[in-house]
Nucleic acid binder design. Structure first.
Length: 374
DNA sequence: GAGGCGTGGGA
DNA sequence: TTCCCAAGCCT
C-alpha cells in the first residue's frame, strides 16, 4: 500500500500532487458499498458470466438508465450465449439499434460465437483469456472476472478515474496515456488482499457506485463520502478541477442528402458498410449533394420527382451531421423496383422499421413520416 | 498512440 | 444553445 506513488517517467511532471495514507482504502470502500451501494440493478445478484458480460458491454460509455430496457430485451430474446451465437447478426443489430457504438454489437456477436466455438459455451475465468475475446478490453475483462469468478483484478472506467483523480490528487487528463498508466498502477495497488468472492464483487461494485452516486462530475456529494477526510480534491476544494478536463477541439460539420424512396407505405433501406459510422445498420441511401441524390433516385427506380422534407441535424461525439432528406416515389409504370449497384437494399413497410437496425436520427425521421405522410 | 466510434441527458 | 461526456475498445 504505497502512501506515495510517483510516475515511472522521471522526465514527466509528477502525476500525484499528494497522496493520503489510505492503507484501508479497499476495506472502507467495501464497507461503504455494502451499506450504501447499489444492490438491485438488473445484472447484479448473479454469477452468470453471460449476463454480467452482456451488461458490461452495454454499459461501455453508456449510462445505466439507458441500458436497462435494452438489457431486458436482449435477455428475453437471447437467454444464453448459445442463443446469441446462433442468431443472425442482423437480428442483433436490430435489438441494439439506438444504443450507439455499433461495433459493440458486432463484437458482441463475434464474442458469443468465440465462446461457443473456442470455450465450449462457457466464458473463461481469467482476465487474460477474457481480454482476448472481441469487445473485451482490460477493464471489462476485470469487471467480468471479478463479478463472475471472484478474480482479484481492477477495473479502470470513467468512474474509477474520477474517484482516483480526486481522492489521490492525480493530475492531468486521464485520456492521456501517461496519466492512464499511472492510474492503472494506482488502481492495482489498491485492490484488497486476501479477499473472497463476495469482497471482490463488493469492491468492484463499490468503485462504480462511488463514482456514479457520490463522486459525480458536476456536484460530488462529499459529505456522504467515506474518503472525504483524506480526499485531496475535497480537502483542497478542487472537486471541479479534478479530474482534468479533456482538451478542447472544434467539431467539424458534415452535410449529407438522404433519399426517402417510397412505394406505397414501404420505404427503401440500404445496408451500410460493416465499419465506420453506423456500421452494419440499415439506413437511407445517401449522396453528397442534391443532384447526386436525384441520380440515385432514378437508378433505384424513382419516378423523377424529388421533394424536400424538413432538414435535421444530429450531433456525434466527433462531428455534427446536417441531414437533408428528399422524398421520392417509386415509378411503378416504369417497371419500378430495379435496384442498381452492388448495395444491399430492402423494402420495409414503415410500421415494420423496428425489425431492422436503423440509426436513431433516421428512425426519428421515418417515425415522423409515418405520422404525417400516410 | 491518437483518433474513430452513438446517443441521450444534465448543466 | 452549447458543451460535456457516461461501466471503453479497436486500429
Amino acid at each position: 500500500m504505497p502512501s506515495r506513488l510517483t510516475p515511472s517517467s522521471t522526465a514527466a511532471a509528477p502525476v500525484l500532487s499528494a497522496s493520503p495514507a489510505l492503507a484501508d482504502f479497499s476495506a472502507r470502500l467495501i464497507a461503504w458499498q455494502r451499506q450504501h451501494g447499489r444492490h438491485d440493478l438488473p445484472w447484479q445478484n448473479t454469477r452468470d458470466a453471460y449476463r454480467i458480460w452482456l451488461s458490461e458491454i452495454m454499459l461501455q460509455q453508456t449510462q445505466v438508465s439507458t441500458v436497462i430496457p435494452y438489457y431486458a430485451r436482449f435477455l428475453e430474446r437471447f437467454p444464453d450465449v448459445a442463443a446469441l451465437a446462433a442468431a443472425p447478426l442482423d437480428d442483433v443489430m436490430a435489438l441494439w439499434a439506438g444504443l450507439g457504438y455499433y461495433s459493440r454489437a458486432r463484437n458482441l456477436h463475434r464474442c458469443a460465437q468465440a465462446v461457443v466455438e473456442l470455450h465450449g459455451g462457457a466464458f473463461p475465468a481469467s482476465v487474460e483469456a477474457l481480454a482476448e475475446l472481441p469487445g473485451i478490453g482490460r477493464s471489462t475483462a476485470a469487471a467480468i472476472a471479478s463479478f463472475a469468478f471472484g478474480a482479484r483484478a481492477t477495473i479502470l472506467d470513467g468512474n474509477v478515474k474520477r474517484v482516483l483523480a480526486r481522492v489521490f490528487g492525480v493530475e492531468g487528463f486521464p485520456g492521456e496515456k501517461r496519466v492512464e498508466n499511472a492510474m492503472w498502477t494506482l488502481a492495482e495497488s489498491l485492490l484488497p488482499s486476501n479477499a473472497g468472492n463476495a469482497e471482490v464483487s463488493a469492491y468492484t461494485q463499490g468503485l462504480m457506485d462511488l463514482g456514479a452516486t457520490l463522486c459525480m462530475r458536476g456536484k460530488p456529494d462529499c459529505e456522504r463520502c467515506p474518503f472525504a477526510p483524506d480526499c485531496v480534491a475535497n480537502v483542497s476544494g478542487r472537486q471541479r478541477q479534478l479530474p482534468a478536463a479533456r482538451p478542447r477541439k472544434a467539431v467539424p460539420t458534415r452535410r449529407t442528402w438522404m433519399l426517402v424512396l417510397c412505394d406505397g407505405d414501404a420505404v427503401m433501406l440500404e445496408k451500410r458498410p460493416p465499419s465506420g459510422i453506423w456500421g452494419g445498420l440499415w439506413s437511407l441511401p445517401e449522396a453528397a449533394d442534391e443532384a447526386a441524390l436525384a441520380e440515385r433516385a432514378r437508378e433505384f427506380g424513382g419516378d423523377g420527382a424529388v421533394s424536400p422534407l424538413a432538414p435535421l441535424t444530429h450531433t456525434f461525439t466527433h462531428f455534427k451531421l446536417d441531414i437533408e432528406p428528399r422524398l421520392a416515389e417509386l415509378d411503378r409504370a416504369g417497371g419500378g423496383s430495379a435496384v442498381l449497384g452492388d448495395a444491399e437494399t430492402v423494402w420495409v413497410p414503415l410500421r415494420n422499421i423496428d425489425a431492422y437496425g436503423v440509426p436513431a436520427p433516421v428512425r426519428k425521421l421515418l417515425d415522423g413520416l409515418q405520422g404525417s405522410l400516410i
